[in-house]
């Protein structure tokens, strides 16, 4: 009995540490005021506005390819439409980088590297980091070539983050659907497990093996 408790206990603790919450791993934490966190999380109300703000402030250098948003010079290029008719709205990365090589290289000349595509940046960095970095790039990442475009505009930054979240994550309706699906699947498996167990008890009693 004590052995069972001991081995189950350490196994559960072990998997809790490595799979759920690693209390030993070092992680950098960034803070974000609650009112702006609320905006960044509310995809439904602010994603649209955030997209407009993105087009005004970020699109000169950054693309969001998964939303078919390309850097401004590409967006103005008539070739884009022809390509989109052929390959679909979201262009394959190799096609995009090959056809618009010159536009990307022009950006590389001014910034030292091609500014990254922001399709999945929300998933990589999280809203707190993005908020702090966009407001004061030099403070968070000294030496970065990202200009301080959004300094002093926290609310608009939060709206842009809401837009990036809407691109990276499934929509709220989709999330609800997935949650229902998850609860349904888990409930089904548990019910089936219990039924199987009860049925087994009955069969074994009949067989005299219980």
């Amino acid at each position: 009995m004590i052995k069972t408790v001991f081995f189950t206990g350490i196994t559960l603790i072990f998997f809790y540490i490595i799979w759920i919450h690693n209390i030993f791993a070092h992680r950098e934490k960034y803070e974000m005021p609650a009112q702006y966190a609320k905006i960044a999380d509310d995809v439904k109300s602010y994603a649209k506005e955030g997209k407009q703000l993105f087009e005004q402030n970020c699109q000169a250098c950054h693309s969001v390819r998964y939303d078919a948003v390309y850097i401004s010079s590409v967006q103005a290029n008539p070739k884009l439409q022809t390509l989109q008719e052929k390959y679909g709205k979201v262009l394959p990365r190799d096609v995009y980088e090959a056809v618009f090589y010159e536009d990307l290289m022009a950006l590389k000349q001014s910034f030292g590297k091609v500014p990254p595509d922001l399709s999945t940046i929300y998933l990589v960095k999280g809203k707190e980091y993005l908020f702090n970095f966009t407001l004061e790039p030099q403070k968070v990442l000294p030496g970065t070539s990202m200009p301080a475009v959004m300094t002093g505009r926290p609310e608009e930054t939060a709206k842009i983050i809401a837009y990036l979240k809407s691109v990276a994550e499934p929509s709220p309706e989709e999330k609800n659907k997935r949650m229902l699906m998850g609860v349904g699947t888990i409930a089904y498996l548990i019910v089936m497990g219990v039924l199987l167990w009860l049925w087994r008890g009955r069969i074994l009693r009949k067989m005299g093996l219980h």
Partner: peptide, 16 residues
């Protein structure tokens, strides 16, 4: 029955 329990835990991770 144990496998059902295992799958329940598995799908908890898959969905959540």
């Amino acid at each position: 029955a144990y496998v059902m329990g295992y799958l329940a835990v598995f799908f908890f991770f898959v969905f959540f």
